[in-house]
């Protein structure tokens, strides 16, 4: 679906944001890209829909090169992007009109836009708020509207560029649940960029970035086996993984691919009843 070939990018002469990244995103996959501030993960996101053009190397979306300006709109239609600040990506004063903004730009006939908007709002569970003004909604709700705005363009990939970073825990839950559901039920390819390791446990695959390079890729469970390495890269393992590691150091036998609360609980309960 998306293919990055040895991509580099720099904002100015002295510092390089990306130093040769190769990565491929498969159709229907849920990929999490994690890294701490300045690791180049947001730059990577903006390269995916031709907001930025790589300095060297190529980004191919469905075989289309982002360097080719004649396919820029086609690429942006295929790769929907949700940004960090929920306020700064909603354009109009009424929720449903905002969701319609993308399809309007694509020149889709009015009746079809109407259908898409209704469907998109329903998918994110915001149909009730169709006539609301964006500034009256909570952060999580605004991000869901932003996602709906992307869905209405019928993209094949949804890129979330730290879309949960400015939300409170319940808002974050709302957005992540919605995205996971989209991936599971509609087979939407998702690229989620985040700095929270614990958000990556719902992904199929995790890529860890540091200083403009991809340091590790693998299943969430495999990545989280190595919490010491993660700490070196400036990332904190989720609380459950820290608990698991601490228990294992004390000699408790736990499967080392247990990463969620449920998995740890399932592994611990038989041990407790044995005691």
């Amino acid at each position: 679906m998306i293919e990055l070939k040895n991509v580099t990018y720099s904002y100015n002469e002295n510092e390089t944001a990306l130093r040769g990244v190769s990565l491929s995103v498969k159709k229907g996959e849920f990929l999490a890209i994690v890294g701490h501030n300045g690791s180049g993960k947001s730059t990577l996101a903006k390269l995916l829909n031709a907001l930025l053009i790589p300095k060297t190397g190529d980004v191919l979306v469905d075989g289309m090169n982002t360097r080719d300006e004649s396919v820029t709109l086609a690429i942006r239609q295929k790769v929907g992007m949700v940004f960090q600040n929920p306020d700064n990506q909603l354009v109009t004063t009424i929720v449903e009109e905002d969701v319609g903004f993308g399809p309007e730009n694509l020149g889709i006939p009015p009746e079809e836009i109407r259908k898409r908007v209704d469907r998109a709002l329903e998918t994110v569970g915001m149909s009730k708020y169709a006539r609301f003004a964006p500034h009256t909604l909570s952060g999580g709700q605004k991000q869901r509207i932003a996602i709906a705005g992307m869905l209405a363009m019928q993209p094949e990939v949804l890129v979330l560029d730290e879309a949960t970073a400015m939300l409170d825990p319940s808002g974050r839950r709302e957005v992540l649940d919605n995205v996971a559901k989209l991936n599971r039920e509609q087979g939407m390819t998702v690229v989620m960029i985040t700095q929270y390791m614990e958000e990556t446990v719902i992904a199929d695959r995790v890529a860890v970035m540091a200083k403009g390079l991809i340091e590790m890729t693998g299943k969430p469970a495999d990545i989280l086996k190595n919490s010491a390495r993660l700490r070196e890269l400036g990332l904190d393992a989720p609380a459950m993984v820290l608990l698991r590691d601490a228990l294992m150091l004390e000699g408790v036998r736990l499967p080392c691919d247990a990463i969620t609360v449920e998995e740890i609980a399932k592994a611990l309960c038989p041990l407790l009843s044995a005691v």
């Binding site: 600040n85 354009v91 319609g100 730009n105 889709i108």
Partner: peptide, 20 residues
Amino acid sequence: ELAMAMESRCYHGGEGRTRM
């Protein structure tokens, strides 16, 4: 940021734009 978000949503001026 808004400009970037609008570009991501294929905004390219009024040309060829329809309305809901």
